[in-house]
Computed example of a mutant assay.
Amino acid sequence: MISSPLRYSPDLELPRPDEVETDESLEKSFDHILETTARDYGRAVRAVHAKAHGLFEGMFTIHDNLPPELAQGLFATPGVHPASLRISTNPGDILDDNVVLPRGLGLKVERVAGERLPEAEGDGQDFLMVNAPVFAVSTPDKFAGKLKLLAATTDRAEGAKVALSTTLGAINAALGAIGLESSALAGLGGARQVHPLGETFFSTVPFRYGDYVAKFRLRPLSPSLTILTNAIIDTSGRPDGLRETIRQDAANLTGEWAFEVQLARDPEKQPIEDASVEWKEEDAPFVQVATLRIEPQDSWSADKVERIDETLHFSPWNALVAHRPLGGINRARRRAYKHSSEFRVRVNGCPFTGAAQGAE
């Protein structure tokens, strides 16, 4: 039997006494990644999720007649919003696609009304997701430790990374810093390079959902996307093979994703502070509250690269008060992501302006 949704209360969060030191460690690791990659590339890139594979503009439709527990915050008012979508891989290096890595997805729902968090800029509500249901580490201090390992792999043995040999173990050991460790990467051959447009993406960490608490999921819905689930992309000899394939497919693709909400029911089974625990669907089911739709488009056009990849930032803290990020991992991201975005502004000499602004 499914219990009633857990009511939001500030008391659900239990900050650790060492989080100031954790924040300082994260900033130090971010600085190493940012400074190394800026030197290598001649410009600043994101400290995590540096390489994008597809950039999309779409429409985010909030469903009407949602039950009261789902009609919360952004989702309390039915309607259609423009949205920007960025599909990426997790490290701060811009690597050859023959290194098979976990994926990330940044979704910015734009022209959003409502009370915003103090640090939120523009008018967007951001959702950051990865292609796994849980974060690989449980607490902020472990997050900082994993990011320190990831920083140590930056700019090291590029040829070996492309060959999927000795460096893959070090990369994989650090991927928990962005939410996922892949056991397949421990092998010499890496994981299968499946099509990103066919994958399901998860927030992995909890958020306030108005009066309640939730995680989020973006699931392929239309046949044009589900047919790509587990489809293999051959990147042999193609360092940007994912980007090329997505661009070719996007030119003729009309696709829809289900945006789903998973309301917490039991703080023991759906903990707020341990991001490594999966909220099981049998205890807390996902329910669709909106649909994201894209029409055929150029997913790597010059204007999208300029607006979405170069100028746009994504942060869980670029949000409405009703969708405040919760838990230690989200608290750790708050300062670190802002630090990263400020570095990009300073080095690239380009302020981030426009309707869609954020932190990373």
Rank of each mutant, 00 (worst) to 15 (best):
T36C: 03
T36H: 03
R39I: 00
R39V: 01
V45I: 07
A47V: 10
A47N: 05
H49E: 14
A50E: 05
K51T: 14
A52F: 11
H53E: 08
G54S: 15
F56C: 09
F56Y: 15
F56H: 15
G58K: 11
H63R: 14
L66C: 12
L66V: 10
P67F: 15
P67Y: 11
P68G: 10
P68Y: 11
P68V: 12
L70D: 11
F75Q: 15
F75K: 06
A76Q: 14
A76M: 13
A76K: 14
T77R: 05
T77S: 05
P78G: 11
G79K: 03
G79W: 01
V80H: 02
H81V: 03
H81M: 03
P82A: 06
P82H: 12
A83V: 14
L85M: 10
L85E: 14
R86C: 05
S88L: 14
T89G: 08
P91V: 07
P91I: 08
P91N: 05
D93V: 00
D93M: 13
I94A: 10
D97R: 02
V99R: 13
V99I: 13
V99H: 04
G104T: 10
L107G: 02
L107W: 02
L107T: 03
K108F: 05
V109N: 04
V109A: 04
E110H: 11
V112M: 01
V112S: 02
A113W: 00
G114L: 00
E115G: 01
P118H: 06
P118I: 14
E119Q: 07
A120P: 04
E121Q: 14
E121D: 07
G122L: 04
D123V: 04
G124W: 02
Q125R: 05
D126P: 02
L128R: 08
L128D: 07
V130T: 15
A132I: 03
A132W: 14
P133N: 09
P133M: 04
V134K: 07
V134N: 09
F135I: 13
F135K: 04
F135C: 08
A136Q: 06
T139Y: 14
T139C: 11
K142V: 12
K142N: 12
F143E: 13
F143G: 08
A144T: 06
A144G: 07
A144D: 08
G145E: 12
K148L: 13
K148V: 01
L149P: 06
L149I: 15
A151E: 06
T153F: 09
R156Y: 03
